[in-house]
Simulated assay, not measured.
Amino acid sequence: MAEFSGEPRGEGRRIVVVASRFNESITVPLAEGAVSTLVAKGVAFDDVDVVWVPGAWELPVAVRRALATGKYDAAVVVGAVIRGDTPHFDFVAGEASRGLMEASRDFEVPVGLGLLTTDTMAQAEARAGGAHGNKGEDAALAALEVLDVCDRAFAHDEGDEADA
Rank of each mutant, 00 (worst) to 15 (best):
126 A>E: 13
58 E>I: 04
29 P>N: 05
99 G>A: 06
21 R>M: 11
32 E>H: 12
68 A>V: 03
71 K>W: 10
84 G>P: 03
85 D>R: 07
80 A>K: 03
33 G>C: 06
135 K>H: 11
91 F>K: 06
25 S>H: 15
151 D>I: 10
94 G>E: 11
69 T>H: 00
105 R>W: 15
7 E>M: 15
113 L>C: 14
143 A>H: 00
4 F>Q: 13
36 S>W: 04
159 G>Q: 08
18 V>S: 06
17 V>M: 08
30 L>W: 04
155 A>P: 07
6 G>A: 02
157 D>I: 11
13 R>W: 09
68 A>K: 08
110 P>R: 01
19 A>N: 01
134 N>S: 06
27 T>C: 15
38 L>G: 02
10 G>F: 13
68 A>L: 14
142 A>K: 01
78 V>M: 08
11 E>Y: 14
45 F>K: 15
62 A>D: 01
86 T>D: 11
156 H>Q: 15
71 K>Y: 10
53 V>G: 01
147 L>H: 03
50 V>I: 06
151 D>K: 12
154 F>P: 11
17 V>H: 03
51 V>T: 04
76 V>S: 05
128 A>W: 05
6 G>I: 00
78 V>I: 02
140 A>L: 06
80 A>H: 04
103 A>F: 08
15 I>Q: 07
138 D>Q: 12
54 P>A: 10
139 A>M: 03
136 G>W: 09
92 V>S: 06
22 F>G: 07
90 D>F: 09
52 W>F: 10
42 G>Q: 00
19 A>V: 00
109 V>A: 15
16 V>Y: 06
127 R>E: 12
118 T>C: 15
5 S>V: 13
9 R>C: 14
52 W>A: 06
39 V>E: 08
104 S>E: 13
100 L>D: 04
82 I>C: 09
107 F>P: 07
94 G>Q: 07
130 G>H: 03
53 V>C: 07
113 L>T: 02
75 A>I: 00
8 P>A: 14
100 L>A: 05
121 M>W: 12
94 G>S: 11
75 A>L: 02
52 W>K: 02
10 G>C: 09
154 F>D: 11
68 A>C: 08
151 D>N: 08
44 A>W: 05
94 G>P: 04
23 N>K: 02
94 G>A: 12
148 D>S: 10
70 G>T: 00
18 V>R: 02
89 F>N: 03
113 L>W: 10
93 A>L: 11
139 A>K: 01
123 Q>P: 07
119 D>G: 15
143 A>M: 09
143 A>V: 04
122 A>C: 08
103 A>V: 04
89 F>I: 01
164 A>T: 08
123 Q>M: 11
19 A>C: 06
55 G>W: 00
